[in-house]
């Protein structure tokens, strides 16, 4: 564990908190992509299958995995029941079939090992790298976003971005660490996908302005 990974995981927790807080206080999930949320649940379920098989790693690891799966499922539950009337499917129209299909192909072509567990792990890594696209697409369609929603997207993106210095740190100082090529490549791709958003967030929202596309 190093500071970057800790901050990354913390950022992920904060993003979950912001999203739930936004929905609970405004009694609405408007501006939030249901499709992205479904993709994230798929990501966590497929990645954390090892909760049942792998030898126990740490309480931290197990606890975080359970929190990520549970909060993701809870978000989907809220969006599909209580706050369903506030969700507008007409602007949440990204074709997620391509993201699911592409991730599956990548996982089948380059798995760490030819086992079901390793293929599902790789699938989840690739899928996570693109799971934000329906959300970003929705922001692009409406041309703007609520500030709280942009905080959510930023915190979620920062999680993977912070993993990059973590990998560099591990490569330099942690002799036992085995860098996972798939995670590194997908993590870089994911951060690149966010770069446009990060730029606008940094130049507008951080200066107190509304998130609006130029």
């Amino acid at each position: 564990m190093n500071i970057f990974r800790m901050l990354g995981d913390l950022s992920h927790l904060i993003s979950i908190f912001i999203l739930l807080h936004k929905m609970q206080t405004s009694k609405s999930c408007s501006g939030v992509s249901f499709k992205s949320q479904v993709l994230y649940l798929v990501v966590y379920v497929f990645r954390y299958l090892d909760l049942f098989t792998n030898p126990f790693m740490s309480y931290y690891n197990t606890l975080m995995k359970i929190v990520f799966i549970a909060s993701s499922a809870y978000t989907i539950y809220l969006m599909s029941t209580v706050f369903k009337p506030t969700h507008d499917p007409a602007i949440d129209t990204f074709k997620i079939e391509y993201l699911l299909g592409g991730s599956l192909v990548m996982a089948l072509l380059f798995p760490p090992k030819w086992t079901f567990m390793e293929i599902s792990w790789a699938f989840s890594i690739w899928l996570e790298s693109v799971a934000i696209l329906p959300q970003l697409f929705m922001v692009q369609r409406t041309g703007e976003a609520e500030t709280i929603t942009t905080h959510y997207i930023f915190a979620l993106g920062a999680y993977r971005a912070l993993y990059i210095p973590n990998w560099i740190w591990r490569y330099m100082f942690d002799k036992k660490a085995k860098l996972e090529t798939i995670a590194v490549v997908a993590g870089l791709a994911q951060t690149l996908l966010y770069s446009d958003f990060f730029y606008i967030y940094w130049t507008k929202v951080m200066k107190g302005k509304k998130f609006q596309l130029p």
């Binding site: 992920h12 690891n61 760490p112 090992k113 086992t115 390793e118 973590n166």
Partner: peptide
């Protein structure tokens, strides 16, 4: 026994 990769990150 061949060692399985352990994905210790989240």
């Amino acid at each position: 026994v061949e060692e399985q990769p352990a994905h210790d990150e989240l």
